[in-house]
Simulated assay, not measured.
Amino acid sequence: MDPTDRRRRATLIAALSGGLALLLLIGVGIYGLLQGPDTREPAPSPSVSATTGDPAPPTAAGAGPMPVLSLGEPEVFAREVAEALFTWDTTNGYGPADYAQVIADVTASIEADAAASDVRAYLPTPAAWAQLLPHQTRQWLTIDTITIPAAWETAVSQAAAGQLPDGAVAYTITGTRHREGTWGTEPVTTARPVAFTVFLVCTPERSAAPPPQDVLVVSCVLLRLSQLDNPLR
């Protein structure tokens, strides 16, 4: 083989290998933007792993889905999304679709269908909801940590121009999912640790107030969610 051709071929292979490594890195780093949760956690009986002394739920029994506020700091929005994902009550006349809707209301239109699938994977299916309803089951989340994962920072630094939306950020959240209900006539509570990543886009925009009161505010929308218990680290 001609030495010039050999050098060109080696250069091409090196370039392809480097490109593949970059694609793999970006694919791993932002998998939540490309691939939502594909499994659903089975709905356990309220009698499983019963514990006592769990913190009280943040909302009163019977309260319906609470709107997610899209204006504010990205970390605050990530917290609101996380709490909306895990806070529900089978006794108030609402169902999984109602709890999913408050998150859909703050989802980016470009990822609406995929994000809707992500959200459904976090909520009980209608069949599971029907099983939980007789036990008067309700659920909520206590958050321990909210951090930007190192894998996201690496992915952002390696991403090509325009590969990620302006203002995109990821937060990995750890905490405890609590459930309470009844089993027969006995009150029962359960708790399990959870971890997941929320992908957002937050951009500044002017408030709707007339001048001179109008100011720049941060508006956020949800892009995607990682699989439950499979977050970016």
Rank of each mutant, 00 (worst) to 15 (best):
A100Q: 12
Q101W: 10
V102A: 11
V102S: 08
I103W: 02
I103S: 02
I103N: 01
A104E: 10
D105Q: 15
V106T: 10
T107A: 08
A108G: 11
A108F: 07
S109Q: 13
I110C: 02
I110D: 09
I110N: 03
E111V: 06
A114S: 08
A115R: 04
A116Q: 12
A116G: 11
S117E: 15
D118Y: 09
D118N: 12
V119I: 14
R120M: 04
R120P: 01
R120Y: 04
R120E: 01
A121F: 03
A121I: 00
A121H: 08
Y122E: 07
P124C: 07
P126I: 15
P126S: 13
A127M: 10
A128C: 06
A130V: 10
A130R: 13
P134T: 15
H135G: 05
Q136P: 04
Q136F: 01
T137K: 08
W140H: 14
T142V: 11
T142Q: 05
T142D: 02
I143M: 04
D144G: 13
D144W: 01
D144R: 08
T145S: 13
I146H: 03
I148F: 03
P149D: 09
P149C: 11
A150G: 13
A150K: 15
A151R: 07
A151P: 00
W152I: 08
E153W: 08
E153R: 15
E153H: 13
T154E: 06
T154A: 12
A155S: 07
Q158W: 01
Q158E: 08
Q158A: 15
Q158V: 10
A159Q: 02
A160G: 08
A161L: 05
G162Q: 10
G162V: 00
G162E: 11
Q163Y: 09
Q163P: 01
Q163V: 06
L164N: 05
P165V: 01
P165I: 01
G167K: 00
G167S: 05
A168E: 06
I173G: 07
T174L: 01
T174C: 02
G175H: 05
R177Y: 02
R177T: 00
R177H: 09
R177L: 13
H178G: 04
H178P: 02
H178Y: 15
H178Q: 14
R179N: 10
E180F: 01
E180K: 02
E180I: 05
E180P: 09
E180H: 03
G181M: 07
G181L: 07
W183S: 13
T185A: 10
P187E: 02
P187H: 00
V188A: 11
V188Y: 09
V194E: 14
V194C: 13
A195D: 05
F196E: 02
V198C: 09
V198K: 14
L200D: 04
L200T: 14
V201K: 09
V201F: 04
V201A: 13
C202S: 07
C202D: 02
T203V: 14
P204T: 08
P204E: 07
E205L: 03
A208C: 08
P212M: 03
D214T: 09
D214S: 11
D214I: 03
